[in-house]
Design a protein around this nucleic acid. Structure first.
Lengths: 213, 213
DNA sequence: CTTGTTGGTCAACGCTCGTTGGCAACGGTA
DNA sequence: TACCGTTGCCAACGAGCGTTGACCAACAAG
């Protein structure tokens, strides 16, 4: 078993290493279309079903290829999720944004991103049930949300605290609207959501520390 | 297959009907301790792992009995979840609450409930990955949250809208703190959370409709 | 003491899953 | 042409799952 396992692992590692290398070089391969189809199907299934219910077989079927191809190109299910959940929130820098419009700008940005990219839904769904998914959410929060928040926040309250408050409101609306699909949350228009949530986000990012009770 | 399925369904239905009947009568049975142990273990596993990863076998092991007992008492996995996810938010009526303290009162109430009852965590985790779980969340929102909100809200904005906004902020904080466990959300104290979130909730429940952009 | 009901275990079923290895076809390269 | 890496399909493995039915022990009722 040692030999078998070691062999398999080495093979997978080699495959991944080669894939990464080629990907960064950007040299085109004949299989690029297939790889892309797999990723698209994976994001689709992960977003709709979460980690456990999204099966490799279903993803392969949706991509129109054999399940073993998924293994060849992404090593295993975890590797596939890692590749499918790579995301860039494309947060605006907020430097050129009037200070009192930060909240509205951010809320609208998140709404647009959520409706235009299934990866975000996949990330939330998987983050809730899978430890690796939760880690991925942590990384996105740490590397993309916190720095942008830190750049515009006044002192007195840690930027990580402000970022967490922002995340709680944004994630909560996304959860209610796109994942749980609570009817009143679904039927709100984008403009209504911005109007209600913008003052909240604005306060979380720019207000002084509130008085404790 | 028709005969088999019909037979199994009839059997399960009978089991459930009998269980429900005895439960509503309240006549004590020798197996009450076992039933309770199963429910406790189920809530524990559902809260920690979500629907798919929480296996009947693991739940039975934690309850110290055989997996087949779970089937006998709750019919199937879905029936077990239905029983384990019955919940009463115990929302205060807010009638005797000073109007300007509604937000703080509600935020603190939800924090207490979340920390004192794993059922809430189970509900959120399962609601995200399982359609039946999402339905259960819808029911709780409709039957317990919306009516309380409707009782204290001014006209002009539908109570269901206000309830959805409330849910988005409460669920978002619960998601960040108890499910995803974002470090800055975990390290906040209860008092800090109340101080930051209370004005938000207060505004969602009592403010006039904001101006659309 | 017998008899029927209840509480509980055990071994197995059928199924689906992630994963593997072998094999055929294709396409550049020498 | 002959070769070899790449792309893809197919069949199967082992494991874990929900679920079932046969069987045993304890108790309650006659």
């Amino acid at each position: 078993m040692d030999a078998d396992t070691a062999g398999a692992d080495a093979g997978a590692a080699t495959n991944l290493a080669v894939a990464a290398q080629l990907a960064t070089e950007g040299r085109p391969r004949r299989s690029d279309a297939t790889r892309a189809a797999i990723l698209r199907a994976a994001r689709d299934r992960f977003a709709a079903d979460g980690y456990e219910r999204a099966t490799i077989r279903a993803i392969a079927r949706e991509a129109g290829i054999d399940p073993s191809m998924v293994m060849r190109y992404y090593g295993n299910k975890e590797g596939l999720f890692a590749a499918a959940s790579e995301i860039d929130l494309r947060l605006p820098l907020l430097a050129d944004c009037p200070r009192e419009e930060i909240g509205a700008r951010l809320v609208r940005h998140f709404l647009d991103r959520w409706e235009g990219d299934e990866t975000l839904n996949a990330l939330v769904r998987v983050g809730v049930t899978n430890p690796a998914g939760a880690d991925r959410v942590h990384a996105v929060f740490r590397d993309q949300v916190t720095p942008v928040v830190a750049a515009v926040c006044p002192e007195g309250v840690p930027a990580s605290t402000r970022a967490a408050l922002l995340a709680s409101q944004i994630l909560g609306m996304a959860l209610s609207r796109y994942v749980l699909k609570l009817p009143p949350a679904v039927s709100l228009t984008d403009d209504e959501i911005v109007a209600w949530l913008a003052p909240t986000v604005q306060r979380y990012l720019t207000a002084e520390a509130p008085q404790l009770s």
